[in-house]
Design a protein around this nucleic acid. Structure first.
Lengths: 340, 340
DNA sequence: GACTGGCACTCGGAACTTTCGAGTGCCAAG
DNA sequence: CTTGGCACTCGAAAGTTCCGAGTGCCAGTC
């Protein structure tokens, strides 16, 4: 059905359209690529490609533009992920290396990704699902107010305040601190519920109400976070390059960026860091984003993904370069996180 | 020069223009407001107002629109800050009350502000300048790697990692932890440098290199943070309501939002929480934002501001309502922070 | 002297028309 | 199967017309 030349034509159309954002005619194609055939032949091929649904005409007397299916075929079969230049790789590592803590890593990553791809970048914070308790600190802020600080294996720090109706004894706090750490250290957050269940009973009945409220708060922090899934966004200014049709292209994206729930669905399940997920136009779950594509991948250790990062851009983006950049950034972030 | 009626006319023009975003003619003005005079009279007044530079004509055969000077006069003399409805106030408190930690307070605030004002909201994180050390925690992550956690009086938590070439003794860590807390607790961050200077000498010569590197990292964290000034942004989707002229109105704002340094300058010095800063159009320090106004105010305790929050929007915004919302949110956030 | 009705004038925007040419599909010939 | 030729289509750009909101000015009125 579609011989090699027709696929070449499709590839050429996608590449040119991505470069110019204007419908591509048969003549222009032949001029810009040495296909070795005449425009008339290309026209026949185009007719076939249109028949198959890979390209379409905005109006009768115009050139062709790729459909979502066309991009899909292009991404799957007609292109290879572009690797970054040595200079770019260096820039990435040196930029990420300067990070001082986990938050900073995420902030830098999002900025970097936006800059390289010139698209809107999205980075999910490493999820607590897989992480474990490294340390729990209990600090007295005032006699009746305690601050709980939870430090996880991937460097994330969570804090909660606990109020108590009576003055709290320092010795009890020290005791509690050491017990909590004994019980929880190294535990997966998801397993913490069971581990904490027995803790109040280790204390004198008089102290149990306080201990119980601390345990409850701690559990809340665990489960809250497992569900919450924080996200960082950057490069929104790149939306200005979408060209015209503000209402249709820019507005929905800007709105989606505000809703982290939507972004999480857009990014999708954290995949293996080796695999790139590309969702083109209508393939993504939101109708308003039908002119938008998502390129995402997981990051974290080699075997299991901690979280997802990616970019959002117009369907007519440069997929090979973008995919290369996303993959590279994911790899380097994984590396940085593994080191620290 | 400008009698009361002329000022009434100006007020009416500003109000109508804010509502319609279209040039206001003399007839329309008389129809919508009961000024008690004929269009011809209003025309004379308009001519005077234009002479004074408060309004201008986009083109000869059109109505008038306010100039930046016109808005300025309106804000300073012709309007009063609009107070929020009881329902709105309730909504604010209940929304903010749900926050679990400082980060959450800021995130909620930015969201809230964007929602109420329907503009782009900016909230500066409470600065560390004024804050003091509440607690310092030193945690062993692996024998040669330590995690420092700094908790400040306003609930902010900073973390840093310190590597050491040799295995570190747990006893030393405990010792160090208690000494650091003794020395620093309650100290202003800005005073910490001097307080920390003597610490290494308290330890055995063999341990001093480790102690010194920890002290250095800690100091870095202090000063880093004092300078850094984090910022949260929200409601970028509200930019879509700017109407047309995307290139001139939306793009520069979107770009500014990416640059936190620019945002900090836009917000300006943290003012007393009682005072609202309004910067209209060209009054702000960036030429590209000449069609944009900023409404900001400080928040924190009654007497001194911790940080600044505000909104960015088109010059033709509804100043009374926006100012009311910004002020109210700042007050409630201050209250929440004071409590915790 | 301040206000008003009347009036001629201006000019941008909407609506319509014209022109232009890139691009097409089809066909007959190579 | 490929190609040159050709008639045809139709959107975009440029030109044209038309309309009326809005203006400034002036003479008359209170």
């Amino acid at each position: 059905m579609l011989d090699d030349r027709k696929l070449d034509v499709l590839r050429a159309i996608v590449e040119d359209y991505v470069a110019t954002h204007e419908p591509i005619g048969s003549k222009a194609l032949v001029d810009r690529h040495n296909l070795g055939v005449s425009p008339a032949t290309v026209r026949n091929d185009m007719a076939a490609l249109e028949e198959e649904g890979y390209i379409t005409q905005p109006h009768t007397s115009a050139g062709r533009i790729p459909t979502d299916a066309g991009y899909r075929l292009f991404v799957d079969k007609l292109s290879t992920v572009k690797t970054l230049s040595v200079a770019e790789k260096k820039a990435i590592t040196s930029f990420l290396a300067g990070a001082v803590d986990l938050d900073d890593v995420v902030r830098r990553t999002v900025r970097l990704l936006a800059q390289i791809t010139r698209q809107v970048a999205i980075v999910q914070y490493p999820s607590l699902n897989r992480s474990s308790v490294r340390h729990i600190e209990v600090v007295t802020m005032s006699p009746r107010r305690l601050l709980l600080v939870l430090i996880t294996s991937n460097g994330r720090v969570e804090q909660r305040i606990v109020e108590h109706p009576h003055d709290v004894d320092e010795q009890l706090i020290a005791d509690l601190r050491s017990r909590l750490n004994t019980v929880l250290a190294g535990q997966r957050l998801t397993d913490a519920t069971t581990s904490l269940a027995g803790v109040p009973e280790l204390f004198a009945p008089a102290d149990r109400s306080l201990v119980a409220s601390i345990v409850t708060t701690l559990l809340e922090a665990f489960t809250d976070e497992v569900g919450e899934q924080r996200i960082a966004v950057g490069g929104a200014a790149n939306l200005t390059r979408y060209g015209d049709d503000f209402e249709r292209n820019v507005k929905p994206v800007l709105e989606a960026l505000e809703e982290h729930v939507i972004l999480l669905r857009l990014l999708g399940e954290a995949t293996n860091p080796q695999t790139l997920t590309v969702r083109i136009g209508h393939e993504n779950p939101f109708e308003e984003l039908a002119t938008t594509s998502v390129v995402a991948t997981g990051y974290g250790s080699k075997s299991e993904a901690l979280a997802t990062l990616g970019i959002v851009g117009p369907t007519h983006m440069d997929y090979p370069s973008t995919m290369g950049a996303v993959r590279a950034v994911a790899r380097y972030v994984s590396q940085i996180l593994a080191e620290s």
